[in-house]
C-alpha cells in the first residue's frame, strides 16, 4: 500500500494522526510526517485516516 499526502492541501488538522497514529504523526513543529509505504495490515486505519481528513489530502494506492 502506498500513501501520499498532498502537502499543498494539508493544513495540519491532525485528524489522521488520531485515526492512524502508526502511519501519521505531527512533529514538534506541528507539521505532518507520515510513513509512505505502511504495511497492508494497517489498511483499515489508513483508510479511516483518509476518510476523516478535513481537506481530503490523503491518497492511497495499491
Amino acid at each position: 500500500m502506498k500513501v501520499t499526502v498532498d502537502m499543498s492541501l494539508c493544513q495540519d488538522h491532525g485528524q489522521c494522526a488520531i485515526a492512524s497514529p502508526a502511519v501519521f504523526q505531527m512533529n514538534d513543529e506541528g507539521k505532518l510526517v507520515y510513513e509512505g509505504e505502511p504495511d497492508d495490515s494497517l489498511r483499515d486505519e489508513v483508510e479511516e485516516a483518509a476518510d476523516v481528513c478535513p481537506v481530503q489530502a490523503i491518497f492511497i494506492e495499491g
Binding site: D12, H13, G14, A17, I18, M26, D28, G30
Partner: peptide, 11 residues
Amino acid sequence: LPPARQRELRR
C-alpha cells in the same frame, strides 16, 4: 491550539 495538543485533548 497546536495539532499535537489537539491530539492529547482528543485522547
